[in-house]
Design a protein around this nucleic acid. Structure first.
Length: 423
DNA sequence: TCTGGGGTCCTGCGGCTG
DNA sequence: TCTGCAGCCGCAGGACCC
């Protein structure tokens, strides 16, 4: 359960759907998605508290069944705390490949309704059904049909919010969870929104909530009644205007199918803080390898390489460098990441996390590959593409940089855990 | 209580350039 | 040639989302 969902514990199920005229935006959200997928293969666990998440000393909850939520367990909670709250919970490790496969089936059902599907995550999406009304009937009927199809074809339940804007549709689906459907009529938006706590708004996290509470603003209605100039002063130009609009139900953002990725990255939290620069560099190599493979797999390249370093006290720094030409080569990403790490001044500081990200993405076809002076024309790109082919044929990890193979056992001692299989 | 991993977006600042 | 200014871009940090 996300923080937002905690704000909307399933209250009494809403009554019959309201007037859905003009409500052509649907937000469909799978109920406890990761857990639901696991229960398909472990039906014996139905009705029991189940938690999906990392079991290591620094693991957190990725998803919790409603039975586990009754004990106060929710997503993003440290696993150690979840175990204390609910010692009888069954803890399962996340299997993202499996969730992605089920998610593909869900999205396929959505796209059979309308091409205007905007996925937000594996387990939720916005649908604009304006073009499907003549063929399939009114929005509420379409929502019911989607819920039936998802359950019949995939065996999991979902909740559907229906409104005239994305933001209200999303709040509606959260409000009717689990396994529900709620229509917020166009003329009932303010009545629906204004009693909600400010933290229910999209874009109000812990920090913003504190600022709003300091101003005496507790509900969305309080926010709506506050001059926008006050909100701009306290929250900044964009956030102030945005939240004021949301508080009045104004949200002009259309449903957009297939928006391109802006960045691709990978990061790793160590089980124990690591201050040895050699081990950090190896981790940068492993992460660069992953990022490069994902870039090539999606036919993209990026111009900016960024690293993230988190100290033991959780303070985090980022460093970035923009290259002359876009790259999808792990070797180049790694070289830049190492240079940034060395320049960071944190070379001997114990770190709990390192990350590598490539930003400013462009389609690989439009990138001009600039050869370094003296670099052979057939070289690293071909070598890494060959590694990609081997990985597809023999599985990820079949081929990897020698530096990673050589030190694997040595690293295990530092990580204190099984190495990920994708390096 | 002690905080994962994948992202997006915004803000502020400084350097560069016309 | 120097200065001031505006606009753009890169960078860093932080808030937020699922």
């Amino acid at each position: 359960m996300s923080r937002k969902q905690q704000l909307h514990r399933p209250g009494p199920q809403p009554g019959p759907p309201g007037d859905d005229m003009g409500c052509t935006v649907l937000h469909v959200d799978m109920d406890a998605f990761f857990v639901s997928v696991e229960l398909l293969e472990h039906p014996d666990l139905r009705g029991r508290p189940v938690v999906v998440g990392g079991a290591g000393p620094r693991g957190v909850v990725a998803a919790a069944s409603y039975e586990a939520r009754a004990y106060g367990v929710h997503s993003a909670m440290p696993m150690s705390r979840a175990r204390r709250l609910c010692p009888q919970a069954v803890v399962l490790p996340p299997r993202h490949d499996r969730y992605a496969a089920v998610s593909a089936g869900v999205m396929e059902i959505f796209r059979s309704v309308t091409p205007l599907v905007e996925p937000l995550a594996l387990d939720e999406a916005f649908l604009d059904v304006a073009g499907a009304l003549r063929r399939l009937g009114r929005p509420a009927r379409i929502g019911r049909m989607i819920r039936e199809q998802v359950f019949e074809q995939l065996g999991i339940t979902c909740s559907v919010g229906i409104a005239s804007t994305k933001f209200v549709a999303k709040l509606a689906s959260t409000r009717c969870k689990p396994d529900g459907l709620l229509v917020v009529p166009a003329d009932g938006i303010n009545g629906f929104l204004h009693p909600l706590p400010v933290a229910a708004l999209w874009g109000v996290g812990e920090r913003t909530e504190q600022i709003l509470k300091r101003l005496g603003l507790h509900t969305v209605g309080d926010l709506a009644g506050t001059p926008v100039s006050t909100l701009r002063r306290e929250l900044g130009e964009a956030a102030g205007v945005h939240l004021h609009n949301l508080a009045w139900g104004r949200d002009e953002r259309p449903v957009v199918a297939g928006s391109p990725e802006k960045s691709i990255g990978a990061e790793e939290t160590f089980d124990h803080d690591i201050g040895d620069p050699e081990i950090i560099r190896r981790e940068l190599l492993r992460l660069s390898d992953r990022v490069g493979a994902r870039l090539r797999g999606s036919d993209q390249a990026g111009r900016t390489v960024a690293i993230k370093l988190r100290r033991a006290d959780f303070t985090t720094i980022t460093r970035a460098r923009t290259l002359r030409e876009p790259t999808d080569l792990a070797r180049e990403i790694y070289a830049t990441a190492c240079a940034l790490y060395e320049a960071s001044g944190l070379e001997h500081v114990p770190l709990r996390l390192v990350g590598v990200r490539v930003e400013n993405l462009v389609p690989a076809g439009t990138a001009s590959w600039q050869l370094a002076l003296g670099e052979p024309e057939t070289g690293w790109r071909e070598a890494e593409q060959a590694m990609d082919l081997a990985a597809r044929r023999f599985g990820t990890g079949a081929v990897r940089p020698a530096a990673l193979v050589r030190v694997e056992n040595e690293c295990d001692a530092h990580y204190g855990k099984e190495r990920p299989r994708d390096s």
